[in-house]
Amino acid sequence: MTSDTPAGRRFRVFSRRRGAPSRTRRRLGAAVRMIAALALAGGVYTAFAPGAFAEEPRQLSATALEGKQLYDNSCITCHGRDGQGVTDRGPSLIGVGSASVEFQVGTGRMPMTRQEAQAEEKKPQFDKNQTKQLGQYIQELGGGPQLPSGELVENLEENPEALARGGELFRVNCTSCHSFTGAGGALSSGKFAPALHDATPETIYAAMLTGPQNMPVFGDNQLTPDEKREIITYIKVQLQDDRDPGGIFNLGGYGPSTEGIAIFVVGIVLLVFTALWIAGKS
């Protein structure tokens, strides 16, 4: 420990006072101490009491201000003032970004009907414009992921391999919950991965970016924006648009479960009635 520490300095000042200072020196010292104390008090006040500035309106854009209005009416009960969250009711929204708002509010999941395992998709409560305003407000509040501008579905004319690559990525990353056909699947305790049949490219992108409900976040480090677009291309082109051959009905794409039901409900019932008919002829 060197003597150039604050403690050492204090000790030196203290020891010097032990001598017999002149009157002028004493007065001068008093004045310096006074100024120093005032500066310290003012500095500490400035450092620890920013409340005077907090009361000032944030530099919110006009859109965000509109969003704040909506927020204070519909979201504040659970997410708290300024998106800080309320314990046991709703999480903080600082840093979730506008992408999260686009997903949750745009698909009607928020505002939630009630607290349950997972927010259900329903008719959106806010129109597109209002969702944008809310998103802008949350974005300006704490930053976070945003949807990129531009086309989210690859052009297969220019980039034909995107479809197969998207399929590969979809099977690796998405099927364990959403299933091969995008029909969705159950998770534990009433949670679930929803079906992807009516998901828009924006919704899917926002979901990957923000990991809503029980979905993990697929940040840009895990799946690059290009890879995300390829996955969306696969979902859009292969699973949503009618490109699925093999009959008029795909039985929901739930695999052997519904196929087993179909063989009894259609096959066996048809043939038992045929048997009744044939045996009835005498």
């Binding site: 690796v172 099927t175 364990s176 009959g247 008029i248 695999g255 196929e259 087993g260 259609v266």
Partner: peptide, 26 residues
Amino acid sequence: LFQINPIWLFGPYRASEVSSASQPDW
């Protein structure tokens, strides 16, 4: 009328890819 076992959606077998709703036949 009814599609059964759309193998083209399942992709080639990879041990790391297990879909939800993976069931055997009834």
